[in-house]
Design a protein around this nucleic acid. Structure first.
Length: 545
RNA sequence: GCCCCGCUAGCUCAGUGGAUAGAGCAUCUGUCUUCUAAACAGAGGGUCGGGGGUUCGAAUCCCUCGCGGGGCACCA
């Protein structure tokens, strides 16, 4: 029998449910019984429509099946009781089990070994290093970072990588723009016109003696690398402000130096995935020319796609990651099939996971990095703070387009839902301080049996749900499930706390040391869980506010 | 034209094919001599974009139409 703590109580219930189905004589395929949270309080905490689902297989009345299941089911540790209702089976978490759960919650509660140490890379952010990060990029880096945090929390060996473009058309234009500014010209057509390019040119003039005397074909690569390095420095500082960390800033030119794109091209040529047409080298199968993509241009210059072919080898072979998760903005969605078929052609198909998130649009009009028209992520952090920024981004499903209104973001900064959760944490921290002050020596062990009020058990109930949230968020790579959970837990905490405002005998810290100790146990369990969940979001858990 | 995402309360958004669709903000009504009121209790507010279909059951799956966003490069 597995410990309930190793997974969630939902897993235990599900195991018990399946075992009961077997006992009823169903063998072979069991349809998905869709055990989920009950939506109405009368239906308990979890519910399944197992009776209805099994009616066809068992050729029996759903009500009868549900009733028999309810009788048969035995959940491990007596964690929950089952009750039939029509074709449904409803589960109610046992009060006594909830109390014991409180005593078992430790810092980091909810961590699970789902990944078994799987080596995987998450590549996210990876914006062309041709300008500062704006609010659109903020979404990508916070999403990617929280995905990493989730995967680390669930037993994966995660490497966080930023792929630094350095040899593509955009970065060349960037280099050419710096060159133009160095000589007092306007950047060329399609170049970068932001003021920061002028600053970069002046810094280069100082840091690269003699650079202004070189002709463009010699100066541009030097200026480009100089400017890219400056931008990478700045991007690194920006993401650090929102608690985003990378293990590796992997430069595109490193690929070419190690011959990986060349090797990938060689292999794809041998396997018949490449062909010459119009003087260029194309990737694609013969069935549809429209789908073909250029790898080497007619002028002999490789495309970014050639680099990406080598990048696949770098990660799946040279560095031996079992899986690679890419986090991209939706404007790259057209590139997904290409990458997928490239990965397939090289034999890595199922191991490449691509997560897309929708765009962040500025209400005042389109952002453009080249035109220097955008709100930087630094601006946003300056005005509303890192915690509110992270919560704001992570609250939304990646599929939702964000219409960003800076004025509104600033005015609403103070009513950001993040403070609701942080306040719950701060209140509990304060309670612990108060308990220590009033009771210098409390009992070592807590008698959790003293937790009897509904507002106390409801906190415990929320704690029971946390492993489910971790599991779902990890399986779907959807961190936005966490802030919604945090809100629910914070609500239960505030209610628990407030019971003591309404009637002082319900406070955590009371005369009776035994009772104080029991309620303190619950406070700590809730505080640890809030802290853990906020950590996964990269949001701080303050001890006072 | 083709591809992707969205359309759910006044606004911003959750919602693994299940029972009576939720939260925050905003609006209205109550609650601080108290372990922190950045809180709590309550009220109002919905043809889940329209129309078909599949199913015992659809906000959820399929088809179709509409609206909004994004993409369809020898840019990334």
């Amino acid at each position: 029998m597995t410990s309930v703590l190793s997974g969630g109580v939902r897993d235990s219930i599900n195991d018990a449910l399946l075992e009961a189905v077997r006992k009823l004589g169903v063998d072979g395929e069991v349809p998905d019984l869709e055990l989920g949270r009950a939506k109405v309080a009368e239906h308990g905490d979890y519910a399944t429509s197992a009776g209805l689902k099994l009616a066809r297989v068992m050729r029996q009345d759903p009500k009868v099946i549900a009733a028999r299941l309810a009788e048969t089911i035995e959940v491990a540790e007596g964690a929950a009781t089952a009750e039939a209702s029509g074709g449904y089976v409803n589960f109610r978490l046992a009060d006594d089990w909830l109390r014991r759960l409180v005593g078992r919650v430790r810092p980091g509660y909810g961590a699970r070994d789902i990944g078994h140490g799987e080596r995987l890379q998450v590549e996210f952010g990876s914006v062309n290093p041709t300008g500062p990060l704006h609010i659109g990029h903020g979404r990508g880096v916070t999403l990617g970072d929280s995905i990493c945090r989730l995967l680390e929390f669930t037993g994966h060996a995660v490497q966080r990588e930023y792929y630094v473009n350095s040899d593509n058309t955009q970065t060349r234009r960037f280099g050419a723009s710096v060159f133009a500014r160095l000589h007092g010209f306007e950047p060329p057509e399609g170049g970068y016109t932001g003021d920061y390019v002028v600053e970069l040119a002046e810094m280069a003039r100082h840091d690269l003696p003699g650079i202004a005397d070189l002709p463009e074909d010699e100066a541009e690569p030097k200026l480009r690398m100089y400017a890219i390095n400056k931008m990478v420095e700045r991007i690194r500082a920006t993401v650090a402000r929102v608690n985003v960390r990378y293990d590796e800033w992997y430069y595109e030119n490193r690929l070419w130096e190690s011959g990986l794109p060349q090797e990938a091209i060689k292999r794809l040529r041998a396997s018949g995935h490449l062909k010459e047409r119009d003087g260029a080298l194309w990737f694609g199968d013969a069935s549809d020319e429209e789908e073909d993509r250029v790898v080497i241009r007619a002028n002999g210059q490789p495309t970014y796609f050639a680099s990406d072919l080598g990048y696949l080898l770098s990660r799946f072979e040279q560095r031996d990651y079992n899986r690679v998760v890419e986090v991209w903005a939706a404007d790259h969605h057209g590139y997904v099939p290409r990458m997928k078929s490239a990965a397939e052609a090289l034999g890595f198909d199922a191991r490449l996971v691509i997560i897309l998130h929708q765009m962040v649009n500025l209400k005042e009009g389109k952002m453009s990095k080249r035109a220097g028209r955008f709100v930087t992520l630094d601006d946003l952090v300056d005005r509303v703070g890192s915690d509110a920024v992270r919560y704001f981004y992570l609250l939304r499903s990646p599929d939702t387009t964000i219409e960003f209104d800076l004025e509104l973001a600033v005015t609403q900064g103070s009513e950001n839902p993040v403070y609701y959760a942080q306040y719950a944490h701060a209140r509990l921290s304060n309670v612990e301080v108060a308990a220590g002050a009033q009771h210098p020596k409390l009992p070592e062990a807590a008698n959790v049996g003293l937790l009897v009020h509904p507002w106390e058990l409801d906190v415990a109930r929320q704690l029971a749900f946390w492993p489910d949230v971790v599991e779902d968020a990890t399986a779907l790579l959807e961190p936005h499930r966490i802030p919604y959970y945090v809100h629910d837990l914070a609500t239960a905490v505030h209610r628990f706390y407030h019971a003591g405002n309404a009637q002082s005998e319900h406070r955590v810290v009371v005369q009776d040391p035994e009772l104080t100790r029991a309620r303190l146990e619950l406070s700590r369990a809730a505080r640890h869980t809030l802290k853990t969940a906020l950590d996964l979001m990269g949001v701080s858990a303050p001890e006072r506010m």
